[in-house]
Amino acid sequence: MSQPSTVPNARALTALKSAVDKAGFYPRLVFDVVEDALDGREPLEQLVHLETHFDRAEVRRHVTALVLTSDVLVVAHVDDHQLDEQGETVMAQVSTETVPLHQIRSVILGFVYAQPQEYSGKEQPRELTLSIAWSGGRRLDLLPASCGDPQCEADHGLNGTSSAEDIVLRVSAEADGPKSLKQARHFAHALRTGSTGSRVGEAPEPRPVLAERHPEPARMAAPRARGRRFAALSGRFGARSHRQ
């Protein structure tokens, strides 16, 4: 694995800044947070995703920035909270995590296609879900269980699913645009390549071809040569002592 660069090139940082500016969520703060988390590494691929949801009468936004380098995945989260009803006092909560690529356990891609019976190979998916797992964390989705009787009021416990994931991003072509979905797919492929041991942007190195080995002839030839030489020397010394 190559050592991280200590001075990121200007083009790489410009591409990262452009993605952060496009999201439009405190872009200067988000960029500074991500650049600090890089610790001088050069960003190779990035995915900046903005989510907006409504909590009663309050609008909440949350941005997730994923930045891939040659040896780590940088994950940054930034969201804001209003501390008063007028919205005059706002606080931003920031968290970053640096994940070595060799610790990433799985990269899961989920797609949603419309009209699959008409699929010809050129259609793009309507939605993409990217799930990344590295720390063994799991998500539980639980729903009340039922027996199938609509009149039954007994407690049947809970049914649910457990899935391994540390982060999940959902990108929609309708909400985020086709370019954003294409970028998310490209980032997922780059992450999958990097986490399986190949360098990002390069094809995997070919496996070395083992040379043919023939140990037996060489091993047997040496004793015979030494034996013949010893016999010749013994005969020579024996003849010399006889003449004396």
Score class of each variant (00 low, 15 high):
Ser106Trp: 00
Ser106His: 05
Ile108Glu: 15
Gly110Ser: 14
Gly110Asp: 15
Phe111Arg: 05
Ala114Glu: 11
Ala114Asn: 10
Pro116Trp: 09
Pro116His: 08
Glu118Phe: 12
Gly121Lys: 01
Lys122Met: 10
Lys122Gly: 09
Lys122Arg: 12
Lys122Val: 09
Glu123Tyr: 03
Glu123Phe: 02
Gln124Phe: 06
Gln124His: 05
Gln124Glu: 14
Glu127Ser: 06
Leu128Tyr: 01
Thr129Asp: 04
Thr129Ile: 08
Leu130Arg: 00
Ser131Val: 10
Ile132Trp: 04
Trp134Met: 02
Trp134Arg: 01
Ser135Lys: 09
Ser135Val: 06
Gly136Arg: 03
Gly136Trp: 03
Gly137Asn: 14
Gly137Val: 01
Arg138Lys: 14
Arg139Pro: 00
Leu140Trp: 11
Asp141Phe: 11
Asp141Arg: 13
Leu143Gln: 15
Pro144Lys: 14
Ser146Leu: 04
Cys147Ile: 02
Gly148Asp: 05
Gly148Val: 06
Gln151Lys: 07
Cys152Glu: 00
Cys152Asp: 01
Ala154Asp: 15
His156Gly: 08
His156Met: 11
Gly157Cys: 07
Leu158Cys: 00
Leu158Asn: 04
Asn159Gly: 02
Asn159Ala: 07
Asn159Phe: 01
Asn159Val: 11
Thr161Trp: 07
Ala164Arg: 14
Glu165Ile: 06
Glu165Gly: 09
Ile167Ala: 03
Val168Arg: 15
Leu169Ser: 06
Arg170Pro: 00
Arg170Val: 13
Ser172Met: 07
Ser172Arg: 04
Ser172Trp: 04
Ala173Ser: 13
Ala175Phe: 04
Gly177Asn: 11
Pro178Val: 11
Pro178Arg: 08
Leu181Ile: 03
Gln183Met: 13
Gln183Gly: 09
Arg185Asn: 14
Arg185Tyr: 09
His186Asn: 11
Phe187Leu: 02
Ala188Tyr: 03
Ala188His: 02
Ala188Gln: 03
His189Met: 09
Leu191Ala: 02
Arg192Phe: 08
Thr196Tyr: 04
Thr196Lys: 15
Gly197Val: 07
Ser198Leu: 06
Ser198Glu: 09
Arg199Lys: 14
Val200Thr: 05
Glu202Leu: 13
Ala203Glu: 15
Ala203Val: 13
Pro204Leu: 05
Glu205Gly: 07
Glu205Pro: 00
Pro206Ile: 02
Pro208His: 06
Arg219Val: 12
Met220Arg: 14
Met220Thr: 12
Ala221Lys: 06
Pro223Met: 02
Ala225Asp: 10
Arg226Phe: 13
Arg228His: 10
Arg228Pro: 00
Arg229Asp: 13
Arg229Val: 12
Arg229Trp: 10
Phe230His: 12
Phe230Leu: 15
Phe230Ala: 15
Ala231Ile: 06
Ala231Lys: 11
Ala232Asp: 11
Ala232Ser: 13
Leu233Trp: 15
Ser234Phe: 14
